[in-house]
Amino acid sequence: MGLDFSVIPKYLDVVMMGAVWTVAITVAAALLSFFGGIVFAVIALYAPKFVRLPFRAFEWLFMGTPLLLQLFLIYFGLVQIGIDLPAFVAGVIGLGLHFAVYNSELIQTAILAVDKGQMEAARTLGLSRGQALKKVVVPQAVRDVIPPIGNNMIALLKDSALVSVIGVSELTLSAQLAIGRTYRPFEFYVLAAVFYYIINLGMEAVLRRIERKVQAAR
């Protein structure tokens, strides 16, 4: 049985719908991981000890265990304590928090690298520490780590395939559905790969635009 790409058009809409879900889950999780990363970084650096220590445990959970297990825990595990999340929401939370922890590491390092004079100048004008962090230090730190955060977001896109295991019919699962009907794994996995590649190009274009935008303010 050779390759036969002529089966693709019939299931193209299925796979395309999957691609749309992949974009949706990636964008939602990326936003959560970005803003979550900022909040986590500030907590890790500035929160009082009784917040910081439990937070470390939470961080370890997300950095030290497989994302797959985290998704299972959020989707199947939380039901037992009465939190019954739709698969899409569970997927966004799992992916988003997982990458938020990685983004937080980057942002923490960047916050510590912002020149001490910035905080001093802000405090001298009468800003509180919180105001100075929010308006002066954190924006600069985030700006400095846009490129590595972008790399994390590309990794997030690829890891979004994992949410197929909790039943979100994103790109990978949609390809599998088409394969189930046609028995044509090569053709549809290649098609899925092409879609991933296109989404990837789109993300890189967006990231480049953001980088260019912040470049002026240096």
């Binding site: 001093e120 802000a122 001298t124 800003l127 924006p139």
Partner: peptide, 24 residues
Amino acid sequence: EKHINEVRQNIGMVFQHFNLFPHL
């Protein structure tokens, strides 16, 4: 903290290395 933030509004300071906010 509240007190010092109010007091500092009355005391302008200029630094050797300017310390302008580069993102603004």
